[in-house]
Amino acid sequence: MSESTEQTEVVPAGVAALEVVDVRQGMFHGSGDTSGYGGLVRTVAMPGATPRPYGGWYDEAADTLTSLLPDYDAAVEKVVVEHGDLTFHVRREHLVDVARALRDDPTLRFEMCVGVSGVHYPHDSGRELHAIYPLLSVTHNRRLRLEVSCPDGDPTIPSLMGVYPSVDWHERETFDFFGIVFTGRPDLTRIQMPDDWPGHPQRKDYPLGGIPVEYKGAEIPPPDTRRSYS
């Protein structure tokens, strides 16, 4: 019986490249545990850049964006098409320009930014904090996403409030939960947690904060400290 069990990445077919974001060892690794769980190695790989053609209206949109931006390759790191959704990974310095181009051009016209979603990848060094902006075009009935990343050491992203005022509270919420500082906007304050709360709760290094529950002699630990096999 082999000591180390490679668990292959669970990936959808048809995606060209994969980017390894994290490699996880099983629990009880290195502790002398013989159950086999210690040898589990799981590579976490997110879908990487999709090669052209993207399909549907995506190619046309990418071409229009190329013509509108002064330097498309500097602004857009990569384009990912997964499960039929288009995501532009944009470098943070060019985020406002890209958003303005997407909003104003008549063939693109993404008038609404429906929110900001933060994600924390603690082991993807240099790109730990991501902010995802889903955009909606009511005129053309289309959707796409913008994704921006920033490192933990310098967690700033330029604010899109000047382009889409609707991201006001969403940016405050993302700041509250992840610590991403959105620059160039008034009043970036906490919105969900109390104003003097320390830390940013939805980061992966922030504990879930539960308490152990005791019932007739047995004590169940909070969910984030229980045994986990995945």
């Binding site: 990445e9 790989a45 499960h83 429906v114 995802i132 959707r143 995945s230």
Partner: peptide, 25 residues
């Protein structure tokens, strides 16, 4: 499988969107 998806439904109040990120687990 690893990846992310955003799906929106029309709830009585407006667009209810769910953004899900999976790491394959």
């Amino acid at each position: 499988p690893a990846g992310q998806a955003y799906v929106a439904v029309e709830s009585p109040r407006g667009e209810l969107g769910c953004h899900v990120v999976s790491d394959g687990g």
